[in-house]
Design a protein around this nucleic acid. Structure first.
Lengths: 123, 123
DNA sequence: AGGTTTCTACGAAAATCTTCGTATTAATTT
DNA sequence: AAATTAATACGAAGATTTTCGTAGAAACCT
C-alpha cells in the first residue's frame, strides 16, 4: 500500500467516518479544523484517486468518493512504521507508552486483558 | 517540541543508541541501512542543531553531537499524533492493534498486565 | 437565452525536506 | 613545507507535498 501523506490521511479519516462523500462535504469538515481551499482538497482527492487510495464514482456530475483502503490496514501500516522508526521494534514498549497515557475505560481495559489471555494461551 | 522529520528521526535513533557521536560515526551507521552521502548527514545534523533537536559540542574540530530531546518525549509525541491521525483518539484500539501483531514475550505481557492493574487501582 | 453558481481539470507556485557539489579551513602525512 | 586527508559551511538543485488561481463545462435560476 502507498503510505498516505498527512493531508491524505485527514481526508481518509473523513471518508472512514462519514462514508461516501463529495469533495465539498469533505472540504467543509476539514475546514472545521483549519482553513483549506476547496480546490486544494479537490486536487488532493484527485491524486488519491490516481494512487488508488480512494474510489471515485463519476456517474453524476458531482463525483462521490469513498475510501479504497481499510482503516485497519492503514492503522497497521502506520503502527508498524512507528514501531520501527521510534520504538526500535519493541511493541510492548509502544503498548506501555500508549496505555500509560491513555484514558482507557474499564471496559477497554477488560478487552485488553482478554486479548492478553488469548495471547498467553496460544503459546 | 518540533516534530522530527524521517531523516532526523533516523539520526536521533543513532544518538539515542550510541550516545555522543560525530557526523562521520552517525553517517557510517546510517550507511549500514542505505546509502547516504556524508554531507547529506552533516547538513541534516546542522539543521537539527539549529532546531534544537541535538546539541553540538564545538570544542574540538570534529564536532560532537548528542540528542537534545529524550527518546521518550519523541515517542509520546509521535504516539499522540498517530493516535489522533489514524486511530481517532482511541488509545485502546491502538493498543489492541499493536498487541495483536506483536511478538511480545511472557515477561512483557506480565509487565503490561501489571500496568493495567495499576491503572485499575488508580480509579 | 443570459447570467450566476458549482463543479472538474490542469498547471504552476510555494513550502518543506533531502541530497550533494564546491569552497574553505584544519590536521596529518611524507 | 607541500601534498593529502578530513572536517565544516554554504548554497543550490531535486523531490515531494501542499496550495491555489484560472479555465472551461454543466446545472440552475430568472
Amino acid at each position: 500500500m502507498n503510505k498516505p501523506t498527512e493531508s491524505e490521511l485527514e481526508i481518509l479519516k473523513v471518508l472512514w467516518t462519514k462514508g461516501a462523500s463529495t469533495v465539498r462535504e469533505v472540504n467543509e469538515i476539514l475546514n472545521e479544523a483549519r482553513e483549506v481551499g476547496y480546490t486544494t482538497t479537490l486536487k488532493i482527492m484527485q491524486l488519491m484517486a490516481q494512487k488508488g487510495l480512494v474510489n471515485r464514482d463519476e456517474s453524476t456530475r458531482t463525483h462521490v468518493y469513498t475510501a479504497a483502503v481499510a482503516q485497519n490496514n492503514v492503522q497497521n501500516h502506520m503502527l508498524d512504521q512507528l514501531l520501527e522508526s521510534a520504538f526500535g521494534g519493541s511493541a510492548s514498549e509502544l503498548v506501555m507508552n500508549a496505555l500509560g497515557r491513555s484514558k482507557a475505560s474499564q471496559k477497554e481495559l477488560d478487552e485488553i486483558k482478554a486479548l492478553i489471555q488469548k495471547l498467553e494461551s496460544d503459546e
